[in-house]
Amino acid sequence: MSALLIRGARLFDGDTWRDDAVIAVADGRFVPASNAPAGAEVIDARGLLVVPGFIDLQVNGGGGINFNDAPSLKTIERICTAHARFGTTALLPTLITDRREARTEAIAAGKAARAAGVPGFLGLHLEGPHLSATKRGVHAAAYVRPMDDTDIRELMGALAGAGPTMLTVAPESTPVDAVRRLVAAGGVISLGHTDCDYDTALAYIAAGATTATHLFNAMSPLGHRTPGMVGAILESGISAGLIADGIHVHPAAARIALRAKRGPGRIFLVTDAMLTIGTDLADFELNGRTIFRRDGRLALADGTLAGADIDMLSSVRYAAEHFDIGLDEAIRMATLYPAEAMRVGHRKGRVAPGFDADFLLMTPTFDLQSTWIGGQKAHSA
């Protein structure tokens, strides 16, 4: 694997900015500049920014295909390639509610992608089918169902070999003991598509759920007498994904949530992107229904939102401009915080010795010049 020595950049390492930085890469990881291997390729990055690569924990598709369309190794490769064009260096291909066989295929594809070392593949996100019927959103009603023992056995098998895995479940359809078992096996349990009340949410958090899926969307809202799932997320200290496109969440609601959020968990950015990313496609099919692409919005004919038509670079820009947090925190919401939510914060989300060499070269106006995964160039503008 090639070695790199990057000189002269303005670096955001995950904590602070440093001018005229020297960054060294060897064997796919950042190393101290003094340890740069002899013969390393030198990159003159004067006038450019270096930031950690983006991490997206909810990616339905990209490059003209959704993971549900064909849950395979080839599909994962295509999705990862499509999102690298927009600065994403690690992602979770996301399978939404579908037939049982689709999940079995997705798990096998995830294991194959991990074995093949697909650049940009972090693990899987299985969103459903164990969701609330009343908060299912675009998820097909015919496939939404309670979790049973067969499901638990299959999911335990997935956790044994597909790498970091996020499971979005609703308390209405998932036994609390199943959450304990799946967490003990290494799963990241995310509560979502649920109409559960505040106390129920807290019980599932106590059982081991550590994240929530697309804050505000498809969940019981915050009321002054019924705090709901939103109240539990803000009060309990778990992490939560947020879609920053100005369509799924009003920027004022996002600003309020960011001010109110109790740690240690953080709100992180997700795209919930569909196959449209990196294409000029108009309408497409999902579970036999037409999804219409109009003015940055993806929806069924009745207006039900169906994922998002936004990439992570655009999400970071939107958050920086509209959430009153500045560029530094917007970058962390797309790098360090999702890494911590998936328990890989010890190796991803920062530009520092020992971390995976996933980084972006940007112009001073925050336009992407190139994407690097494991020290290898994955995309060049």
Rank of each mutant, 00 (worst) to 15 (best):
L49A: 04
V138M: 13
F366I: 02
Y318M: 02
R332V: 08
T335N: 00
T88I: 03
A160V: 03
R343K: 13
S380D: 08
A254W: 06
L286A: 06
F292W: 08
F30V: 07
E154F: 10
E329W: 11
G263N: 07
T16L: 03
G28T: 05
F355T: 07
G303Y: 14
L5N: 05
K111E: 14
F216Y: 15
A82F: 00
G63K: 06
A252H: 12
D195R: 06
E101D: 14
D311W: 07
Q369N: 15
Y143Q: 11
R332S: 07
G208D: 00
A320N: 13
T94D: 11
R180P: 10
G192W: 01
P251E: 08
V249L: 09
L131T: 02
R347S: 05
R347W: 04
L182E: 02
F121V: 02
I291T: 02
G47P: 06
P32Q: 04
A357V: 05
G28P: 05
G349V: 03
G187W: 00
A352Y: 13
M274P: 05
R289P: 04
T174I: 14
A206R: 00
N35Y: 07
A113G: 13
R297F: 01
G246S: 09
F12R: 10
S370E: 10
A252L: 14
S72D: 01
L215C: 05
G326K: 06
R317C: 04
A260D: 04
R18T: 15
T75E: 10
A142D: 15
L305Q: 10
G163L: 12
I310D: 06
L49C: 04
A84E: 13
A257T: 13
F366G: 01
L73D: 02
A140Y: 04
P338Q: 05
A70H: 11
D197I: 08
I65V: 15
T363V: 13
A282W: 02
I76N: 03
L131Y: 02
L281M: 15
E285Y: 04
H83A: 06
P264F: 14
G61C: 05
A185C: 05
R85K: 14
H83D: 12
E105D: 08
G263Q: 08
S2I: 15
E101K: 12
T335K: 01
E127A: 05
G110F: 04
M156H: 13
F292I: 15
L57I: 01
D245C: 00
G208H: 00
I267Y: 00
G163S: 09
M156E: 15
S173E: 09
A21W: 11
I325L: 06
F355R: 10
V183E: 04
K74V: 00
F359D: 01
V270E: 03
H83G: 10
I43M: 08
P264W: 13
I43V: 15
L336A: 14
T134M: 04
M147I: 07
V183T: 12
E340V: 14
L57Y: 02
R85V: 01
A9N: 11
M219I: 08
H125G: 01
K74Q: 14
T168V: 11
P221K: 11
G117P: 03
I55A: 01
L202H: 02
F268R: 00
V42C: 03
L313D: 07
A170Y: 05
L122A: 10
A260V: 09
A357I: 09
R100I: 10
V351E: 00
V25N: 00
A160I: 01
D245T: 12
